[in-house]
Amino acid sequence: MKDDRFDVMVEVVPPAGADAAPLMKTLEGINDLSFTGFSVATNPVAKPRMDALSLCRILQDELKRPATLHVTTRDHNRLSLQGILWGAKALGIKTVLAMTGDFVPLAEKEVTSSVRDISLPDLITMAREAGLHTGVVMNPFTDELRLGIAIKRLKEKVEAGAQFVVTQPVYTSRDAEIIAEAVTPLGIPAVLGILPLRTFRHAAFLHHKVSGIEVPDAVRTAMANADNPTAEGIRLTRELLDTARNHFSGACIMPPFDHFEILHAVLPTE
């Protein structure tokens, strides 16, 4: 579903510790750019980070832009999730992204357990009942079989109350267009996930090691052959952002390894 409004969100990973000051100083450096707000991850790749709700409030207070809170079924039981959602509403957080969360690595399962005592549809319903604008994520597979499965799952999330969807990172305009066409019949806004590539090694790692992300052969080859791989990654990001403006209701840019400075080459100033 495409409408006249186009929002650009910047994904932020909270710090691994209690001090948000260095991250905030970095983000102040991009606050003159034209984007809508922040999307704040919750313990990505199942590693401990500062509480995402706390960072959302800090971002809104200090940078005066809305923050979307990621909420997972992995880390909290039903009681805790209900409290988080009510707390988010009370603290002025208007939007949440409901998801299952990355799986805990096998090597760490003896010391870290996944909770998951609530289903994702139940979490979506709970978030809606708390008065929060609620989004979900989807894998960006474009082959017929897996795309069909992804759309079926997305339809179930929409039936539970999901109001928009953010894709996992996509790496070609053609794949983005296929996904946009498949999501349109569901009648909800779709946001294109864009994770800029920095090196061939980065592209290969995402493709081979990160669940839900596929970097096509042609893109990995282009990164391998580029004289300046980071510049090639920025070029691709610009291309995908243009595609998003034509086919999606927004884009979520996910700067890798806190390299927010690349946004200066991607987004205009306000």
Results as ranks from 00 to 15, higher is better:
Gly17Lys: 00
Ala18Leu: 02
Asp19Glu: 14
Ala20Lys: 00
Ala20Gly: 03
Ala20His: 11
Leu23Phe: 05
Met24Pro: 02
Lys25Phe: 01
Lys25Ala: 15
Thr26Ser: 15
Leu27Arg: 08
Leu27Met: 12
Gly29His: 01
Gly29Val: 00
Gly29Phe: 00
Ile30Gly: 08
Asn31Leu: 06
Asn31Phe: 01
Asp32Val: 03
Leu33Cys: 13
Ser34Phe: 05
Ser34Ala: 15
Phe35Val: 08
Gly37Lys: 14
Phe38Val: 03
Ser39Leu: 14
Ala41His: 07
Ala41Asp: 08
Thr42Phe: 00
Thr42Glu: 15
Asn43Phe: 12
Pro44Ser: 07
Val45Met: 14
Val45Trp: 07
Val45Ala: 14
Ala46Val: 10
Lys47Phe: 12
Met50Trp: 00
Met50Leu: 15
Met50Pro: 07
Asp51His: 09
Ala52Gly: 09
Leu53Gly: 11
Leu53Gln: 11
Leu53Thr: 04
Ser54Val: 12
Ser54Trp: 04
Ser54Cys: 06
Ser54Gln: 04
Leu55Pro: 01
Cys56Ile: 02
Arg57Gln: 12
Gln60Pro: 00
Glu62His: 09
Glu62Met: 01
Glu62Tyr: 03
Leu63Gly: 10
Leu63Trp: 01
Leu63Met: 06
Leu63Gln: 04
Lys64Val: 13
Lys64Asp: 13
Arg65Ala: 03
Arg65Phe: 00
Ala67Val: 02
Ala67Ser: 14
Thr68Leu: 13
Thr68Met: 15
Thr68Lys: 13
Leu69Thr: 11
Leu69Trp: 13
His70Val: 07
His70Cys: 02
Val71Asn: 06
Val71Glu: 06
Val71Phe: 10
Val71Tyr: 08
Thr73Glu: 07
Thr73Ser: 10
Thr73Leu: 09
Arg74Asp: 12
Arg74Met: 08
Asp75Ile: 05
Asn77Asp: 14
Asn77Arg: 01
Arg78Glu: 14
Arg78Gly: 01
Leu79Arg: 13
Ser80Leu: 14
Ser80Pro: 01
Leu81Asp: 10
Leu81Trp: 06
Gln82Phe: 05
Gln82Asp: 12
Gln82Ala: 05
Gln82Tyr: 11
Gln82Lys: 14
Gly83Asp: 06
Gly83Trp: 08
Ile84Pro: 11
Ile84Glu: 09
Leu85Gln: 10
Leu85Lys: 09
Trp86Glu: 11
Trp86Tyr: 04
Gly87Ile: 01
Gly87Ser: 13
Ala88Trp: 03
Ala88Cys: 04
Ala88Arg: 02
Ala88Thr: 03
Lys89Ile: 05
Lys89Ser: 14
Lys89Ala: 13
Lys89Gly: 02
Lys89Arg: 15
Lys89Cys: 06
Ala90Thr: 10
Leu91Glu: 09
Gly92Asn: 09
Gly92Lys: 07
Ile93Cys: 14
Ile93Trp: 08
Lys94Asn: 07
Val96Glu: 00
Leu97His: 03
